Simulated assay, not measured.
Amino acid sequence: MCTLPGHGIPRDHRDDAYLTPDRDIFFCETNGRITGATHILDVFRTRLLSAELRERRVFFEHFHLPVPSFEQATDQLQESGLAYEPETGTGVILVADLVEEGATVIYCVVAPDLNGAEKMQEQLHHLFPSHAQL
Rank of each mutant, 00 (worst) to 15 (best):
Ser50Thr: 06
Arg47Phe: 09
Ala51Met: 11
Arg23Gly: 01
Arg11Cys: 11
Asn115Asp: 15
Pro10Ser: 13
Cys108Tyr: 08
Glu71Asp: 14
Gly36Glu: 07
Ser130Met: 14
Gly116Phe: 03
Ala83Asp: 10
Tyr84Val: 02
Asn115Glu: 15
Thr88Trp: 12
Cys28Thr: 14
Gly36His: 05
Arg45Met: 05
Glu122Thr: 13
Leu19Arg: 03
Phe44Asn: 00
Cys108Leu: 14
Leu48Glu: 04
His39Asn: 08
Ser80Pro: 09
Glu118Ser: 10
Val92Met: 03
Thr38Asp: 04
His126Asn: 12
Asp97Ala: 07
Phe27Trp: 08
Glu71Val: 14
Phe63Cys: 08
Asp24Gln: 09
Glu55Ala: 14
Ala111Val: 05
Phe63Gly: 09
Glu85Lys: 13
His126Gln: 13
Ile34Ala: 04
Arg47Glu: 14
Leu77Thr: 00
Glu85Cys: 11
Ile25Pro: 00
Ser130Lys: 14
Ser69Met: 06
Glu100Asp: 13
Asp42Ser: 08
Glu118Leu: 14
Glu52Asn: 12
Gly81Ser: 07
Gln76Ser: 13
Pro66Leu: 01
Tyr84Asp: 09
Thr3Glu: 12
Arg33Thr: 03
Tyr84Gly: 04
Arg23Gln: 11
Glu55Leu: 13
Pro10Lys: 06
Leu77Tyr: 07
Arg23Asp: 11
Gly102Asp: 15
Arg33Val: 04
Thr20Arg: 07
Leu82Gly: 04
Val109Ile: 15
Thr104His: 12
Glu52Val: 06
Asp97Val: 06
Ile93Met: 08
Lys119Val: 10
Phe27Ala: 01
Pro129Asp: 01
Phe63Ile: 11
Gln76Glu: 12
Ala83Leu: 10
Asp22Ile: 02
Tyr107Lys: 03
Arg33Asp: 00
Asp113Tyr: 11
Leu49Met: 10
Gly36Tyr: 04
Glu52Cys: 10
Pro66Ile: 01
His62Leu: 08
Leu82Trp: 10
Met120Leu: 15
Ala96His: 08
His7Phe: 13
Phe70Thr: 09
Asp113Cys: 12
Phe44His: 02
Leu94Lys: 05
Val92Ala: 01
Arg11Met: 13
Ile106Val: 11
Asp12Val: 15
Leu19Tyr: 01
Asn31Asp: 04
Gly6Pro: 00
Pro68Asp: 13
Thr46Lys: 09
Leu48Ser: 06
Leu124Phe: 05
Arg14Trp: 14
Val67Gln: 04
His125Thr: 08
Glu61Tyr: 10
Arg57Gly: 00
Val95Cys: 05
Glu29Trp: 02
Leu134Gln: 12
Thr104Lys: 01
Phe27Met: 02
Ala103Thr: 05
Asp42His: 03
His39Gln: 07
Leu94Glu: 03
Thr104Ala: 03
Pro112Glu: 13
Ile9Tyr: 03
Ala17Phe: 11
His131Arg: 08
Thr30Met: 06
Leu48Thr: 02
Thr35Cys: 03
His131Asn: 06
Asp24Tyr: 05
Leu77Glu: 03
His39Tyr: 09
